[in-house]
Amino acid sequence: MPSATNTDSPVIDVSHVVTKFGNAVVHEDVSLSIQRGEIFAIAGGNGCGKTTLLREIIGLIIPSAGTIRLFGIDSRHLEAGDGHPVHRRFGVMFQYGALFSSFTLAENVAVPLREHTTLSAGLIRDIVAAKIAMVGLPPDSAVKYPNELSGGMRRRAALARAIVMDPELLFLDEPTAGLDPIIAAGFDDLVLSLKDLLGLTVVMVTHDLDSLWRIANRVAVLGGGKVLGVGSMQELSRADDPVIREYFHGSRGRAASEQAAWNTRERRA
């Protein structure tokens, strides 16, 4: 394997990224590094450029300045769709699933295998069935089309497609947005268990405070085109930055942190 996969070096290295759309500056100066095996969350208010940063990391957008390295490879070199081998090493779950509407769920999940491997149809079928079961979807949903699935099921189906190649790195864009609290919590648990089972590094964009408390190892808060703070939720909740304080200590933030504290006590008891 290439030396770039050295275990010590960060999986993702974002350094001094500037992003401009016309006159609008989305990122003034953003630097981050994400280590192997962690669940890293990118948080921040609406419009702070979380999703844009994610799209830059996966090579869908090229930043105006600065560099992003994914497995040590400059993201400029993996501009979307050219079949760079690095594409096999990460999976992406888009916010609205982005399932292909003309394919059934099973066909959707099978797409990466069909495109990138020469496996037999039988083996592909078994792998697809295993992934569908892993994300907790019933086997009979495999023949359904995306518009026949509920929002939560579509999210799980998108996750199954994202992990079908057994990637090292998984990107989740707003994984729990628009899901009810119970299903959202179930989704968080699913991400945790898959991370342990498949040894994933997870990068997620979210502003769901519950899931930040529940599963994120480290969180970066974006705001005003900069990284306002990086750390665990406990560290961030003690931060002095007014925007972070507002973010975590607003009424919703307090409820989420109390809930998290309660959960910890429960677990100890």
Partner: peptide, 25 residues
């Protein structure tokens, strides 16, 4: 052990997927 856990997970849902009947139309 980590591989064994994965295998056990696969085994647990194997019977349903064995025939692939769910995928057939």
């Amino acid at each position: 052990p980590e591989f064994e856990e994965l295998l056990r997970k696969i085994e647990a849902q194997w019977p349903q997927s064995e025939h692939g009947s769910a995928i057939r139309r």
